[in-house]
Computed example of a mutant assay.
Amino acid sequence: MFPVCHIEDLPVGASVRIRIDDTTPAIAVFHTEDGLYAVDDTCSHQDASLSEGWVEGCFVECPLHAALFDLRTGAPTCLPARRPVRTHEVGVLDGTVHVRPAVREGAVA
Protein backbone atom coordinates (compact mmCIF):
# COMPACT_ATOMS: atom_id res chain seq x y z
CA MET A 1 0.00 0.00 0.00
CA PHE A 2 1.16 3.51 -0.78
CA PRO A 3 0.87 6.42 1.69
CA VAL A 4 -1.32 9.30 0.55
CA CYS A 5 -1.58 11.82 3.40
CA HIS A 6 -2.44 12.12 7.08
CA ILE A 7 -6.14 11.57 7.69
CA GLU A 8 -6.47 15.04 9.28
CA ASP A 9 -5.22 16.56 6.00
CA LEU A 10 -8.17 15.00 4.12
CA PRO A 11 -11.34 16.25 5.84
CA VAL A 12 -14.79 14.87 5.05
CA GLY A 13 -15.89 16.22 1.67
CA ALA A 14 -12.33 16.60 0.37
CA SER A 15 -10.42 14.69 -2.28
CA VAL A 16 -6.82 14.39 -3.36
CA ARG A 17 -5.20 13.26 -6.61
CA ILE A 18 -2.12 11.05 -6.36
CA ARG A 19 0.43 9.69 -8.82
CA ILE A 20 2.28 6.57 -7.71
CA ASP A 21 4.56 6.16 -10.72
CA ASP A 22 4.64 6.72 -14.48
CA THR A 23 2.97 3.37 -15.23
CA THR A 24 0.00 3.72 -12.86
CA PRO A 25 -2.88 6.04 -13.81
CA ALA A 26 -3.59 8.85 -11.35
CA ILE A 27 -5.89 7.93 -8.48
CA ALA A 28 -8.46 10.14 -6.75
CA VAL A 29 -8.97 9.54 -3.03
CA PHE A 30 -12.21 10.82 -1.48
CA HIS A 31 -13.18 11.21 2.17
CA THR A 32 -16.97 11.05 2.41
CA GLU A 33 -19.30 10.84 5.39
CA ASP A 34 -19.46 7.09 4.67
CA GLY A 35 -15.69 6.59 4.61
CA LEU A 36 -12.71 6.66 2.29
CA TYR A 37 -12.86 5.67 -1.38
CA ALA A 38 -10.33 5.60 -4.22
CA VAL A 39 -11.01 5.44 -7.96
CA ASP A 40 -9.07 6.14 -11.14
CA ASP A 41 -8.90 9.92 -11.35
CA THR A 42 -9.76 10.19 -15.06
CA CYS A 43 -13.43 10.12 -16.06
CA SER A 44 -14.20 7.19 -18.36
CA HIS A 45 -16.23 9.47 -20.67
CA GLN A 46 -13.63 12.11 -21.40
CA ASP A 47 -10.29 13.29 -20.04
CA ALA A 48 -11.35 15.09 -16.82
CA SER A 49 -10.07 14.81 -13.27
CA LEU A 50 -12.67 13.30 -10.93
CA SER A 51 -10.76 14.63 -7.92
CA GLU A 52 -11.90 18.08 -9.10
CA GLY A 53 -15.54 16.95 -9.21
CA TRP A 54 -18.37 17.43 -6.73
CA VAL A 55 -18.93 14.81 -4.04
CA GLU A 56 -22.32 14.05 -2.59
CA GLY A 57 -22.74 10.99 -0.41
CA CYS A 58 -20.90 8.12 -2.12
CA PHE A 59 -21.00 9.72 -5.57
CA VAL A 60 -18.70 12.02 -7.51
CA GLU A 61 -19.86 14.20 -10.40
CA CYS A 62 -17.38 14.75 -13.20
CA PRO A 63 -16.62 18.48 -13.55
CA LEU A 64 -16.62 18.34 -17.35
CA HIS A 65 -19.95 16.82 -18.43
CA ALA A 66 -21.68 15.92 -15.11
CA ALA A 67 -21.30 12.14 -15.40
CA LEU A 68 -21.95 10.64 -11.97
CA PHE A 69 -19.94 7.73 -10.54
CA ASP A 70 -20.61 5.54 -7.51
CA LEU A 71 -17.41 5.69 -5.45
CA ARG A 72 -18.13 2.26 -3.92
CA THR A 73 -18.21 0.41 -7.25
CA GLY A 74 -16.88 2.85 -9.87
CA ALA A 75 -20.08 2.38 -11.89
CA PRO A 76 -21.51 5.34 -13.79
CA THR A 77 -25.06 6.19 -12.78
CA CYS A 78 -25.94 8.48 -15.67
CA LEU A 79 -24.86 9.52 -19.14
CA PRO A 80 -22.64 10.59 -20.76
CA ALA A 81 -20.37 8.04 -19.01
CA ARG A 82 -21.01 4.42 -19.95
CA ARG A 83 -17.91 2.67 -18.62
CA PRO A 84 -16.99 2.36 -14.94
CA VAL A 85 -13.82 3.72 -13.40
CA ARG A 86 -11.58 1.30 -11.56
CA THR A 87 -11.77 1.26 -7.75
CA HIS A 88 -8.81 0.80 -5.41
CA GLU A 89 -8.40 -0.42 -1.86
CA VAL A 90 -7.99 2.40 0.66
CA GLY A 91 -7.45 2.39 4.40
CA VAL A 92 -5.90 4.18 7.34
CA LEU A 93 -2.83 2.90 9.17
CA ASP A 94 -1.37 4.84 12.11
CA GLY A 95 -3.26 7.98 11.04
CA THR A 96 -2.04 7.85 7.43
CA VAL A 97 -4.33 7.18 4.46
CA HIS A 98 -2.95 4.41 2.21
CA VAL A 99 -4.03 3.16 -1.23
CA ARG A 100 -3.41 -0.22 -2.85
CA PRO A 101 -3.83 0.24 -6.60
CA ALA A 102 -5.93 -2.38 -8.37
CA VAL A 103 -4.08 -4.48 -10.92
CA ARG A 104 -4.79 -3.29 -14.46
CA GLU A 105 -6.19 -5.81 -16.90
CA GLY A 106 -3.41 -7.32 -18.93
CA ALA A 107 -0.75 -6.21 -16.44
CA VAL A 108 1.75 -8.72 -15.14
CA ALA A 109 1.51 -8.97 -11.34
Results as ranks from 00 to 15, higher is better:
F2S: 01
P3K: 13
V4Q: 09
V4I: 14
V4G: 10
C5Q: 12
I7Y: 03
I7C: 02
D9K: 13
D9G: 04
L10S: 13
V12P: 08
A14D: 13
A14V: 02
S15N: 11
S15W: 09
V16M: 11
V16N: 03
V16C: 11
R17Q: 14
I20C: 08
D21A: 05
D22T: 14
T23C: 04
T24Q: 14
P25E: 00
A26I: 03
I27G: 00
F30T: 11
H31Q: 14
H31S: 08
T32L: 11
E33P: 03
E33N: 12
D34T: 13
G35S: 12
L36G: 10
Y37I: 02
D40H: 11
D41W: 00
T42S: 07
T42E: 09
C43V: 10
S44Y: 02
S44R: 00
H45M: 07
Q46F: 10
Q46C: 04
L50Q: 10
S51W: 05
S51M: 03
E52F: 14
E52S: 12
E56Y: 07
C58P: 05
V60A: 01
V60K: 01
V60D: 00
E61G: 00
E61S: 00
C62A: 12
P63M: 06
P63D: 06
L64I: 03
H65Y: 06
H65A: 04
A67D: 04
F69A: 00
D70K: 09
R72P: 08
T73E: 12
T73A: 12
T73K: 06
G74C: 03
G74A: 04
P76V: 07
P76T: 10
C78Y: 01
C78D: 02
P80E: 09
A81I: 13
R82N: 11
P84G: 03
P84T: 06
V85L: 07
R86K: 11
H88V: 06
G91M: 13
G91S: 15
T96Q: 14
T96A: 12
V97K: 11
V97W: 10
H98G: 07
V99R: 07
R100Q: 15
R100I: 15
P101W: 01
A102F: 10
V103D: 05
R104M: 13
R104S: 13
A107F: 04
A107Q: 15
V108M: 08
